[in-house]
């Protein structure tokens, strides 16, 4: 495996101050190799999305260092640095401007970054994500949820990023549409060779999509292992095992531990 494309060390992020301070991320250290598909799993409030936002440059204050493609980055980034890292958000209904056409949504990033041949790029990227030329001049409300998420993926890809960040990309979609989007993401990764970091609460989705996975809980990374190991339940930390069993369907026997846990929180 080649050198790490994303290197996070000692990352801590807190919001608010004084008694209301929330330590969302505590001393997280991760390295994602070039071309790797990396996954972050955890429950709500575990800090997984905050880590992703920090990599994207969307968190203003943090301690620790983030290196992207070998270069240390800060929240204040150059255009070139921003182009390297692109993100797809969870909610395809909220992340597209309702009064902008698909064409506008896709060409704006290209204009900002001063790319040439924008029309051709838009056509190419639409075809890449499996949309038809006629979708180009539609508004988001004229598209289905799956199509909107394809537009969001296209918007990230038009800049040809080296790193694609995926924040729960399919959790707002029906399962049959989820399958289409997951297939698309897998195919694009093979064709374009980008590195991806995917955040999800769905263990099955993450283990299907990712080479390596980190389990997060209450701001910390508990352990990191291969997607295979996660799927086979070979993670060792008690919390990861609990998450694994709870993800396998309704199982009453797990309950005793959980109430215990709830009492401690």
């Amino acid at each position: 495996m080649s050198a790490a494309t994303v290197e996070i060390s000692g990352l801590s992020i807190s919001f608010g101050s004084g008694v209301r301070q929330i330590n969302a991320v505590k001393d997280v250290t991760l390295a994602v190799a070039d071309g790797e598909a990396f996954g972050l799993v955890g429950e709500s409030g575990s800090g997984k999305s905050t880590v992703l936002n920090a990599v994207a440059g969307l968190v203003d204050r943090y301690s620790g260092t983030i290196r992207v493609a070998g270069e240390a980055v800060t929240p204040k980034r150059s255009l070139a640095q921003r182009r390297l890292v692109q993100m797809v958000f969870q909610d395809p209904y909220g992340s597209l401007h309702p009064r902008q056409t698909v064409d506008k949504a896709l060409s704006d990033p290209a204009v900002i970054h001063g790319l040439d041949g924008i029309g051709a790029r838009v056509e190419r990227v639409l075809a890449d994500v499996g949309l038809k030329p006629e979708h180009r001049f539609r508004y988001p409300h004229e598209l289905s949820g799956g199509q909107r998420q394809r537009v969001a993926i296209a918007r990230a890809l038009i800049l040809e990023p080296r790193i694609l960040l995926l924040d729960e990309p399919t959790s707002a979609l029906d399962v049959s549409v989820q399958a289409e989007v997951l297939n698309l993401l897998r195919r694009l990764r093979i064709e374009h060779g980008f590195t991806s970091i995917m955040v999800s609460h769905n263990l099955a989705v993450v283990s299907y999509m990712c080479d390596r996975i980190a389990v997060m809980n209450r701001g910390r990374v508990l352990e990191t292992g291969t997607g295979d190991a996660l799927a086979k339940g070979q993670f060792v930390h008690a919390y990861s095992r609990q998450l694994f069993r709870a993800s396998s369907g309704y199982d009453r026997s797990l309950l005793g531990d959980l109430w215990q846990d709830a009492a401690e929180r």
């Binding site: 997951l182 263990l203 099955a204 989705v205 996660l230 086979k232 993800s247």
Partner: peptide, 10 residues
């Protein structure tokens, strides 16, 4: 519908 869901160990 059943087969389109990824399962653990898929």
């Amino acid at each position: 519908l059943l087969s389109s869901v990824p399962r653990l160990g898929d």
